[in-house]
Nucleic acid binder design. Structure first.
Lengths: 350, 350
DNA sequence: TCCCTTTGGTAAAACATTTTACCGGTGCGA
DNA sequence: TCGCACCGGTAAAATGTTTTACCAAAGGGA
């Protein structure tokens, strides 16, 4: 019990070689070790139940083999499916490549003390993945054009040169527009994301509206309302839209939560979502399929986004050759047709 | 750029004291340092932009100031709101007490190599919080009656002596039974959790059925069906229940996901959940409030469970005096009445 | 036979801290 | 005046690796 854990020196002694040799065996590299000694060392490790100390290992070469997942200080961020899916993707890749994942929340005090830099200086972590970034996170400027290993997940920035991986929001906007147009809808409302602070929200809304315009549908500015990505704000936005144009036949919401909020608003004025008012969401979170009617939406492969972002970060870390390749990478999206959209004719015929 | 990061020795030199003194100042403890030197050292740290290396710090006293959150290798575990809420709770407490959180997934190879022990031996982590435990995780025996710092979150075990924190499932079962009974329901079905492998599921179901019996309602064994906590299994279980007794007026599901699955089953036979068949869930996950009708459920404060579990683990770690106090702690639950339950009379009157 | 290269391996420095034991000086009681 | 406690601080050992530079022996070509 009180017996000290075996260290590399014990293994060396037990197998009659130097501690350097043990280290070389441990790190597999360097075939400078004969098979005989290798086996002897391995046997000694086994019998002593030796496990190298991660702490001590990191010291000399200043590597922790750990990545940080940093999220903004939203209400219980980890309980959000959106973040959860991304984190799952990140974990898969990190684990496969021998890295661990540290969770960090960017609370105000955390940002003020620039702990995100300490984290790196500290050797606690070899790189950072930042989720939920907005234009308001001005401290991201600390990473602008620096060679610090950071990847922003699912947002882009014009003002700072940062590595990032995003879903193809431009394509999503076009898909939504095409779908509603082809179903015959012409009076369409849009619940945008927080477009003032999120570049991908702007992109989604702009391409959506532009594609509609290209096809001859002009959406009144008053039929575009911002929400904050939550159910409640989606409901309020939809209330607003329906008040401004009671004849609306379709709504495109920038995420599923707001789309589900729109369901409530539609019901509140005695209409039926998916019959009187077609609704398209975005993201395809689990509750979307569960809703009644099941929500037609644009699937964002967040798992994939997490995987790609993590791979990108590790590539940067492991080959210290700075930023080769594009700063921003895109992950494809696809339409998932369910029951919340109907052709306009069918709605009219009722 | 290539300039080496300042270390404790540099600070010592700059402030004209020994490196021990700097260390003492750093660790705040020991008021053996005069205010004058303290200020001098602090100033030197400031001007050198010194940040102590977490890695090196951990080495001598074998503490990482980090906790591991270990989850089973379910499909994308982190995307599950249930785990997410618990993790949020854990994070809050850990951060407040100066600890970091490492994410780990118990994949098969992970378990085979007993990495969960390595993690501790390794000094990567000072303690482990295990989420989603079942009786099938037999490797938990490695922690049985050992003094290793582990807390199991939201499950209990009779076969092993382990620290744990759980929701009060016994109370939840009684609340559900009381509620349905008082609404006048007498023909009641129950979708249980995986009772064969999860002790808290057994507890929930047993107290539910027992309370009904106490009040004179005898539930046929055939009206208790197991599900696997997922929407789909809930739907299948409800199909089964409704086939076995088409006159059923109420269903209690062991979690909200299965309750929402039951909605689908009820609709599939042309009935209306919350009108023809009252449904009670358990957990109160976000989609419960969003469902139509909004789901009546028993709120489990998972955030609180996470907080409590983490506090318990840290108490154990910081005061090495082994296991004082109860092995299992309980967190309260409460009924959340929404629209998925109606008095039997009202259903009958239709 | 001499020199050079390769093979298999080692000694020692470096990494950045904590902690233990100790030390010189000062003030105070006996 | 002696001895002791306390104050402010230090030297050195300990923590467990990686990595660089070096070395001895063996083999091969000239």
């Amino acid at each position: 019990m009180a017996t000290r854990r075996a260290n590399i020196r014990d293994v060396a002694k037990a197998s009659g070689v130097s501690l350097t040799t043990v280290s070389l065996v441990l790190n597999k590299q360097d075939h400078r070790i004969s098979e005989g000694t290798r086996q002897r060392v391995l046997a000694a490790m086994e019998s002593l139940q030796y496990t190298p100390s991660r702490l001590a290992r990191g010291l000399p070469n200043r590597r922790a083999n750990t990545l940080a997942v940093l999220v903004p200080a939203l209400q219980h961020a980890f309980a959000d499916v959106y973040f959860g899916q991304i984190i799952s993707g990140i974990y898969e890749v990190a684990a496969d490549r021998g890295y661990r994942i540290l969770l960090e929340v960017a609370r105000p005090s955390y940002v003020k003390r620039k702990e995100y830099l300490t984290l790196l200086d500290d050797c606690s972590v070899d790189g950072i993945l930042f989720l939920g970034a907005t234009d308001e996170h001005t401290w991201l400027a600390d990473f602008h054009a620096s060679n610090r290993p950071l990847v922003v997940v699912n947002n882009t920035f014009e003002q700072w040169e940062l590595n990032s991986v995003v879903c193809d929001y431009a394509e999503a906007g076009r898909i939504a527009a095409n779908h509603l147009y082809e179903l015959g809808h012409r009076r369409i409302g849009h619940i945008a994301g927080p477009a003032d602070v999120v570049a991908t929200s702007r992109e989604l809304s702009e391409t959506f509206l532009q594609r509609l315009r290209e096809r001859g549908v002009w959406v009144d500015d008053r039929l575009v309302v911002d929400g904050q990505f939550q159910v409640e704000t989606g409901r309020l936005a939809a209330d607003e839209l329906l008040a401004r144009d009671p004849e609306l036949t379709a709504i495109f919401a920038a995420n599923d939560k707001m789309a589900l909020g729109a369901y409530q608003a539609v019901r509140a004025i005695g209409k039926r979502p998916g019959e009187d008012v077609s609704i398209v969401g975005c993201d395809d979170i689990p509750p979307a399929a569960l809703a009644d009617p099941a929500l037609t939406t644009i699937r964002m492969n967040f798992l994939r986004v997490g995987e790609t972002a993590c791979a990108k970060l590790l590539d940067h870390i492991e080959s210290r050759n700075g930023k080769e390749g594009a700063l921003a990478e895109r992950v494809g999206v696809e339409l998932v047709e369910r029951d919340s959209c109907v052709p306009l004719a069918s709605a009219a015929s009722r």
